[in-house]
């Protein structure tokens, strides 16, 4: 309860969990500067694959921000995940240029091939498919990234092959 003072919360014994350790390391890296909050989220996501909700209280405490402020920034950016994602993340552009080159049917085909809904992760946890709004690759629409690597003029087959290559599993 905040009103009985968050600072007075009981101190639990034992070793800090890996999330708290990562937070301490990363916040320390930026000198606990509140204006480096987005960089810290990037580093956490790079390290842990996502930014777990449990990281937010310790970040808020170290940066002397409120929990709401930290949550507000994190939730604003679709690129940050608060839940674990697949081992490979596929981001398919559905901005105007790519849509004009058939992005919407393409997305349907990709999801179909990989057996996963848009914005979610496959049952085995191998792949996540997400929409993005412009990868800056309009001349080579439709565009997508697979595991962070940008590809132009993609089709479902190629995306599936790239995923298989990275996961070692058939889509």
């Amino acid at each position: 309860m905040a009103m009985t003072r968050q600072n007075a919360a009981p101190i639990s014994g034992g070793d800090p969990d890996p999330v708290t350790e990562a937070v301490d390391l990363i916040c320390g890296r930026y000198g606990d500067r509140p204006d480096a909050l987005i960089e810290m989220f990037h580093d956490l996501q790079d390290g842990l694959g996502h930014v777990p909700e449990t990281a937010l209280k310790p970040i808020a405490k170290r940066l002397n921000l409120s929990r709401a402020e930290v949550h507000g920034v994190l939730s604003f950016y679709h690129d940050f995940h608060t839940k674990p994602v697949g081992r490979v993340v596929v981001k398919v552009c559905r901005a105007e240029a790519c849509q004009s080159m058939g992005a919407l049917p393409l997305i349907a085909q990709i999801c179909d091939r990989l057996g996963v809904g848009l914005g979610s992760t496959s049952a085995g946890g191998s792949v996540t498919v997400e929409p993005v709004y412009c990868l800056g690759n309009c001349a080579l629409a439709p565009a997508a990234t697979v595991g962070g690597v940008l590809h132009g003029r993609v089709d479902a087959e190629r995306v599936a092959a790239l995923v298989t290559e990275m996961t070692g599993e058939a889509g």
Partner: peptide, 26 residues
């Protein structure tokens, strides 16, 4: 203690973290 969570159509007022309600929040 409050924030506008998310963006666009998904924007909504939130009392802190995802697991927070008004009472558990700050």
């Amino acid at each position: 203690a409050l924030t506008l969570e998310g963006r666009g159509f998904a924007s909504k007022i939130s009392a802190g973290l995802e697991m927070d309600d008004f009472f558990s929040s700050e």
